[in-house]
C-alpha cells in the first residue's frame, strides 16, 4: 500500500499473463544488475587512479616548480590546464594532489574500521565494564564535531600524510565499533559459538573463526561508504591548510589557493573542484551499486 494512487489507470494495460510474469521478473532482475551508473563512474575512478599512481611517469613538470613565464595563466602549451597564482602547473598539482586524496581515502577507513572492529569485538564479546567504558568513550567521541577532533590532532601531531590518515581514521571508529558490537552480541550467544566455547576454544580463536567471518560483510559495506567521506573530510582539512603541509599539493589546498583569485582566474579553483566532485560522486555511485549487490548475494536473491 505504499502507493496512494489507485490502480485504475493500469486497468487498460492488461496483457496476457505469461507475458506479464516474464516482464515482472525481468524488471526485478535488471534493477539488480550493474548498469551504466556503475560502469561510467568505475571508468572515471580507474582513470583517476592510474593517473595518480603513475604520476611520475607522465612527464609532467614537478608540482612545485614555478614557471616564471606563465603565472596564473589559462591553458597554454606545456600547461594543458594552465598555471596557478604562483606559476605552478595546475594539471601536475591536481594529479599529485590526487595521490594524497586517494591515499587518505583508502587508508583512513581501513584504519578506522580496523580499530572500531577491535573495540566493538571487545565490547560485544566481554560485555561488562569493558563495554561500559568503550560506550562512554564512543559517546564522548560523538559529542565533539569531527572537524574539531581533526583540528586538534593536526595541531598536536603535525601534518604528515601518515598522521592525517590516522586522525581521519579515528573519525570512523564510533560507527564501526557500534556495528561490530551489535553484530558480536548477536553472534556471540548463538549455538555454534557456545559449542566452540564448550569444546575449549580460546577467546581469540572463537572471535577469529566464528564471529569475525559473520561481521565482515557489514563492515565492508561500511568501508565503501567511508571512502568518499574520507576524501571529502581530507579536502575540508586541506582547504583550511591543516592537512599535509605545503608545498605538497592536495585537492582541498589547490581549491583554497584558487579561491583567492576566483574573480580573475576561476579555472584554478573550478578544475580541481570538478575533479574532486566527480571522484567523490563516482565513489558514492560505485559503492552504492556494490553494497546493493552484496546485500543481494547475502540474501541469496541471485
Amino acid at each position: 500500500m505504499a502507493d496512494v494512487t489507485s490502480s485504475t489507470q493500469r486497468d487498460a494495460t492488461q496483457r496476457p499473463e505469461i507475458d506479464r510474469n516474464a516482464i515482472a521478473i525481468a524488471l526485478h532482475r535488471r534493477s539488480r544488475r550493474f548498469g551504466l551508473f556503475f560502469w561510467i563512474p568505475m571508468v572515471w575512478l580507474i582513470v583517476v587512479a592510474v593517473a595518480c599512481i603513475f604520476a611520475p611517469f607522465w612527464g609532467l613538470p614537478p608540482a612545485d616548480e614555478i614557471d616564471w613565464v606563465y603565472i596564473q595563466s589559462p591553458p597554454v602549451e606545456g600547461h594543458p590546464l594552465g598555471t596557478d597564482n604562483l606559476g605552478r602547473d595546475l594539471l601536475s598539482r591536481i594529479v599529485w594532489g590526487g595521490r594524497v586524496s586517494l591515499t587518505v581515502g583508502f587508508a583512513a577507513p581501513f584504519i578506522g574500521v580496523g580499530l572500531g572492529l577491535i573495540l566493538g569485538l571487545i565490547a560485544g564479546y566481554y560485555r561488562g565494564w569493558a563495554d561500559e567504558v568503550i560506550g562512554i568513550l564512543i559517546d564522548a567521541w560523538l559529542a565533539i564535531p569531527g572537524l574539531v577532533i581533526l583540528l586538534l590532532f593536526s595541531v598536536v601531531f603535525g601534518g604528515s600524510l601518515f598522521m592525517v590518515c590516522v586522525s581521519l581514521g579515528l573519525l570512523f571508529i564510533p560507527t564501526a565499533a557500534r556495528i561490530t558490537r551489535a553484530a558480536t552480541l548477536n553472534y556471540a550467544t548463538r549455538e555454534f559459538v557456545l559449542a566452540a566455547k564448550a569444546m575449549g576454544a580460546s577467546d581469540i580463536r572463537i572471535l577469529r573463526k566464528e564471529v569475525f567471518p559473520n561481521i565482515i560483510w557489514p563492515l565492508i559495506a561500511f568501508v565503501l561508504i567511508d571512502i568518499p567521506i574520507a576524501i571529502v573530510v581530507e579536502g575540508s582539512l586541506s582547504f583550511l591548510g591543516l592537512s599535509v603541509k605545503a608545498p605538497t599539493p592536495s585537492w582541498g589546498g589547490i581549491i583554497a589557493e584558487g579561491r583567492e583569485v576566483l574573480s580573475t582566474s576561476p579555472h584554478i579553483a573550478m578544475v580541481p573542484t570538478v575533479v574532486m566532485f566527480l571522484t567523490v560522486l563516482s565513489f558514492n555511485l560505485v559503492g552504492d551499486a556494490i553494497r546493493r549487490r552484496l546485500a543481494d548475494v547475502r540474501e541469496g536473491a541471485i
Binding site: 500500500m1 505504499a2 502507493d3 494512487t5 489507485s6 490502480s7 493500469r10 486497468d11 492488461q14 506479464r20
Partner: peptide, 14 residues
C-alpha cells in the same frame, strides 16, 4: 473500494 497498491492489476472486464 478501488483501494489497491500500485503493483495490483485488474483486467478491463472486471
Amino acid at each position: 473500494m478501488r483501494l489497491l497498491p500500485s503493483n495490483a492489476l485488474v483486467p478491463a472486464d472486471s
